[in-house]
Design a protein around this nucleic acid. Structure first.
Lengths: 338, 338
DNA sequence: TTATATTGCGCAACCGATTACACGAAACTT
DNA sequence: AAGTTTCGTGTAATCGGTTGCGCAATATAA
């Protein structure tokens, strides 16, 4: 039971042929006879041959590895997208290596660097919240390594990207709140440097405008939109006695926090205040009332992102034009607004 | 802005030295003069040198890659563990590559195979629910590749493992339910081939026994313990008119489903039925009432798993004895049982 | 039957770094 | 001052596949 390591040379020796023939046989090269292929496969199985992808990657320059960078895999949205990518990648005999930035800029840079060192054949990424500088991605592009961004993108990078129509998602949601009677809707959003939060804010504003409602800057709150942020802002709203009858949050977590505080203060939902979140996190259907939210189409997004990526990978031409795909979100109406 | 690829040979050429000297300089070899090191580093920076880990891995036999296999990264528990592993790994200059089995046996086998092909230096894994055959892990061991299991382990494999004291967690939880007045406690569990579910069942049984309560097989339900399973079983309980005043579930998801159904049927929680889950998923604190559950100590588990792994990795000796670490869980008492 | 194509495989360089071994020069011993 | 260490670097093999080129043998074409 020793460290059995077998190479194509071992196979070659047993068959009295050369390693190159074995290599070609294993790769199903057309110039190798069927009989030789059969023999090679047989011996390979017999001596428990395990291809060394490292050696192959070194020589061929192709690692068959795709780096997937997300803020955190621990989110239903990202994990669904990852699964979509993984499925297509595996079907093409590619492996993905997942790496998380935890929304920290330095980690993001390091992770991209690690991808480069690992000689990935391409990178699929969603940008972190704190990222303002894109040199690490520019470096990827300079090296001619295929890069596709999804969801959290940047207009500073001229690459293919797959996004949700965040503007529409927010618009539908706020429009729904207004139609259900809301007149003073609070907005929870985040850094306007992030495309998705900018778009969601635009959607909110446009929906208000289309219903001839004023946009009140005092009702707009910027934060990281974690649960605690939602709690804090809701507490502040109540303490200051701000008048409002609805909240649209660009994050399910923040609206969850706000709902907790409102309920703790005896405010009836949706009778007194209507709530809507964004992201369709599983827990939004567990709460009481369940939370109205916007589904981000994670499954199709993963699929399309992967397809876009492989298109790019297989395109000899350095692909003149970057392609942008925009998916339609779906408003999920639940008890918190209805 | 061409595909700039620079190697140690390029650095060597610029300095009129050999690639071996450059290699040594970059690796901070003691026999290289400080001046040469300085020069090498300078030129390396200047021509934007990027080490080729693939080449290095091939020659040295060390990829500095650790394969981390989990059922799904989309669970707060696993993602926390992963983060713990990642942090320690990075500090040792190792990269982790995450791979998900989605609890499917075939994927698990394929993923392990992929790790082997990628020539990872070691594997950290949590076994899938459907896995009954461990040949793929035996193969890893035979090759002398360090393997550490956490949480979902197997006694068939003689390797270091890090687990929660699941028996204790269940015991504490059921003991708590009984002390709060429960006499007929339903158990939700899963395949008894999985250590954690077996242990949790034992904990349930021991707690009942210690309080002189009978173990009623009709109150024990086996399932995958997803939300839907919880709903289904709860519905069945109600339809059949089974008498019960408490449910202990080995999964937070299943108890969530059960709680939904009970509430839909006007049953008061915790007055009529008390509930307790397992896992401390974030959503358990969002529900109404919040769900009593058992925290699995994911952060320490990640840290300890990684430490165990690196101990193993650095141990020349093929480490005579496998080490088993058992962590103490923490009962989180919330409204669903109190 | 001779010329041309195709088939099947070997030769050897190569990918980019690592490392055992060697060797001259400088430093140190006694 | 001759002998022994230490220092700093070069030489060349090596890791395990991949691949352009070449060539003999067989098949096809003219």
């Amino acid at each position: 039971m020793k460290n059995e390591k077998s190479t194509i040379h071992d196979i070659a020796a047993k068959l009295n042929i050369t390693a190159s023939t074995v290599s070609r046989a294993l790769n199903n090269h057309p110039r190798i006879s069927d009989e030789t292929k059969r023999k090679v496969l047989k011996v390979a199985k017999q001596i428990n041959y395990q291809p060394n992808h490292i050696a192959s990657a070194l020589r061929s320059g192709k690692s068959r590895l795709i780096g997937v960078l997300v803020p955190t895999a621990n989110r239903s949205f990202f994990s669904s997208v990852i699964r979509g990518i993984e499925d297509l990648a595996n079907s093409f005999n590619y492996q993905i290596i997942i790496s998380q930035s935890y929304d920290e800029f330095e980690r993001e840079v390091n992770n991209v660097e690690a991808f480069l060192n690992a000689r990935v054949d391409g990178i699929i990424a969603s940008i972190g919240k704190t990222t303002e500088n894109f040199d690490h991605f520019q470096k990827v592009l300079q090296k001619g390594i295929p890069l596709v961004l999804f969801d959290r993108i940047s207009n500073e990078l001229d690459v293919s990207q797959v996004v949700l129509d965040d503007h529409l998602g927010a618009y539908l949601s706020v429009d729904h709140l207004i139609k259900n009677g809301c007149k003073k809707i609070v907005l929870f959003t985040s850094s306007q440097r992030i495309n998705i939060y900018k778009e969601r804010k635009r959607g909110y504003e446009d929906a208000l405008a289309d219903h001839q409602l004023d946009i009140d800057p005092d009702l707009i709150f910027y934060s990281n939109m974690q649960l605690e942020d939602g709690r804090r802002i809701a507490t502040e709203l109540l303490e200051k006695g701000v008048e409002f009858d609805g909240i649209f949050s660009a994050s399910d977590y923040a609206i969850m926090g706000a709902m907790q505080v409102l309920k703790e203060n005896g405010i009836q939902i949706p009778q007194q205040v209507k709530l809507a979140g964004f992201g369709n996190e599983p827990f939004t259907s567990f709460t009481e009332p369940a939370i109205t939210t916007v589904d981000q189409k994670s499954i199709p997004m993963g699929k399309i992102t992967a397809e876009t990526f492989f298109d790019l990978l297989n395109k000899e031409t350095s692909s003149e034009l970057a392609k942008k795909t925009i998916l339609k979100p779906e408003l999920i109406i639940r008890g918190s607004s209805n």
